[in-house]
Amino acid sequence: MLPLLAAGPAQAREVRIMVLGDSITAGYGLPRGQALPVRLEAALRAKGHQVRIIDAGVSGDTTAGGRARLDWALADRPDAVIVALGGNDGLRGIEPRATAENLAAILDALAARGLPAMLAGMLAPPNLGADYGREFAATFARLAEQRPGVVFYPFLLEGVAGEAALNQPDRIHPNDAGVAELVRRMLPSVESLLARIPAG
């Protein structure tokens, strides 16, 4: 009788990453299977990560809206959170100080719960002026600098914003190819976030 083979290492547990975002997260204008959370999950799984991405995107949401619904969203019990809010603040010309206060409250609430976080930055539309644009962009970098434990991805739409071939006709929301490019560029930062999730 052949001896029993020793069991291999147990498969790592599935971890849950929530994306707290707006229409970019919610997949505005795209079929469900092409939304950012779905594509990001598929890309991570293709690299061997046992991960589930929770879509907590609400179209039109501002940082104030995300802050207001954070506790409700966390009922899904994620192991880590990607904060991808701010685009609508910029579109509405909201005072960058208010955006900073809302994002700080979100990040601090996640830290208090022991949840690793990734902050995705955003840029303001150029029609709001150079001064507003600089102050708005600096808001995200400053928040990340003040919180060294937060993974910082400077611009959510890096490589996609302004590229007609990667956006829907509104020139704001990524199309299928645009989402693929977002995922490709974000992946290393999301893997850094995964590495900060405690084992167990």
Rank of each mutant, 00 (worst) to 15 (best):
I106H: 01
T63Y: 10
A111Q: 14
A112M: 07
A112F: 12
D71P: 05
A111H: 15
L103H: 11
A46T: 10
A98G: 02
L36W: 13
L123F: 12
E41S: 04
G121R: 12
R39L: 13
V81G: 05
P125K: 15
A46F: 07
P31A: 05
E101C: 01
P37T: 13
L70W: 15
T25E: 03
G121C: 07
G121Q: 02
V58Q: 07
P37M: 04
A112V: 12
D79R: 13
V38S: 15
L103M: 05
A26L: 04
A43K: 01
M122G: 03
G57F: 10
G33K: 14
D89V: 11
M122C: 10
D108V: 02
A46R: 11
A100K: 12
I94T: 11
L128C: 09
L119R: 03
T62C: 05
G90F: 08
L91R: 09
R32W: 08
P116I: 09
D108N: 13
D71V: 14
I106N: 07
T63L: 06
L40H: 05
G87V: 07
L85I: 03
G60D: 06
G90P: 03
A111W: 09
A56C: 13
A80Q: 02
N88V: 05
A100M: 04
G129M: 01
I106F: 05
V58C: 02
S59W: 13
R113L: 15
D89I: 13
G60K: 11
A64T: 02
V38H: 15
A64L: 08
A26Y: 09
P78Y: 02
P116S: 02
P116H: 08
L74N: 10
A100Q: 13
I106W: 00
L115G: 08
G93P: 05
R32H: 14
Q34M: 12
R97L: 08
A120M: 15
G86Y: 07
G114R: 08
D61W: 04
G65P: 08
L123W: 09
D61H: 11
Y28D: 03
L123G: 08
A104D: 12
R77F: 03
R92P: 06
A75S: 15
L119C: 03
V51T: 09
M118Q: 04
A109T: 14
V83R: 06
I82N: 01
R97W: 00
G87W: 01
I54M: 11
G121I: 02
